[in-house]
Design a protein around this nucleic acid. Structure first.
Length: 288
DNA sequence: AACACCCCCTGTCGGC
DNA sequence: TGCCGACAGGGGGTGT
């Protein structure tokens, strides 16, 4: 489910339930997700308070009071939910945990946080606070598109020497982070730029080239901002931590709309092609 | 260094 | 109805 707007929505949903709370107990259903859980994963967390919950790219970072950062990534199918703790003595109902509930954080108070992930492409790591910036997962991450610095000139600089097309360049987390397949398609449609255009063609001295870069930067920020405001997108009935549904999926202009009429009423149909092994949806008439 | 491919895993959907 | 392939919001690892 998760691109930047979804991860940010999850963060906002979890923050009030988690921050300031002490983790009493951690249950794991298995030894690994995408990667093995670190040694002493539960023990390092248990008894410690969560000081903050932030987002970097598509990662959630829970800062603990022992100078450790709990790093969480949702992969393709990860989700969190906040539950009331089960009551009574049957705390651990053997074999009865719902399918794919892999991690349970039992917090002080009456709540527990459950991580569910059918495909198990998500993962959780512990990284000492001081090592985060140098860690291989974070060292090369690009700029945050909703930070203050993403504009036309910056995009132009980032894409200057790239040989790949715009679709691929926008998915590259080392350039701009947080975009995924949906929002790249949407941003390209909004900006009227073809996913097949070479990324380096945003680099040019002409007014036209500068305008293209400016349009794309603006479209990226706009689509992400609107999606965050809508609570992200809920595909395949995916729910947010509080059980509610995001509704930005109803605003998709092109994503998963192969064969439908272009929203610009140009008379063409949305096309689907494959780039870097992933589906791209676009209007060949409106995006050049 | 930059890029192209393959892979991880489960669930769902459409076609036959 | 059942079976089978294609595909799904990500990204790490490897080989060129």
């Amino acid at each position: 489910m998760p691109e930047l707007p979804e991860v940010e929505t999850v963060r906002r949903g979890l923050e009030p339930a988690m921050v300031g709370k002490t983790i009493k107990k951690v249950h794991l259903s298995r030894p690994d997700l995408r990667f093995p859980f670190p040694d002493h994963f539960a023990r390092t967390l248990e008894g410690h308070k969560i000081l903050s919950l932030t987002r970097r790219a598509k990662y959630l970072l829970a800062e603990l009071d022992n100078q450790q950062i709990l790093v969480m990534h949702l992969g393709m199918s990860g989700s969190f939910r906040i539950e009331d703790k089960p009551v009574g003595q049957f705390h651990h109902q053997r074999g009865k945990s719902p399918t794919h509930d892999h991690v349970i954080f039992i917090l002080e108070g009456d709540k527990q946080i459950v991580y569910n992930d059918p495909r198990r492409f998500g993962f959780m790591l512990l990284i000492p606070q001081n090592d985060i910036a140098q860690h291989k997962l974070f060292r090369k991450i690009g700029i945050e598109p909703l930070g203050n610095s993403l504009d036309g000139p910056q995009l132009t600089t980032l894409f200057r020497a790239k040989k790949v097309n715009l679709k691929t360049a926008l998915l590259d987390q080392t350039l701009i982070c947080g975009l995924g397949n949906i929002y790249v398609c949407e941003a390209l449609f909004k900006s009227g730029l073809s996913p097949k255009r070479k990324a380096a063609t945003l680099n040019g001295r002409t007014i036209l080239a500068r305008e293209r870069a400016e349009r794309l930067a603006h479209s990226i920020r706009e689509v992400l901002t609107q999606a965050v405001a809508a609570g992200g997108s809920s595909l395949r009935d995916h729910r947010q931590a509080d059980g509610s549904l995001g509704y930005f999926q109803h605003h998709f202009q092109v994503y998963d709309r192969e064969g439908e009429a272009c929203p610009n009423k140009c008379g063409c149909k949305i096309k689907r092609i494959v780039q870097s092994g992933r589906s791209t949806f676009y209007c060949a008439h409106c995006q050049k």
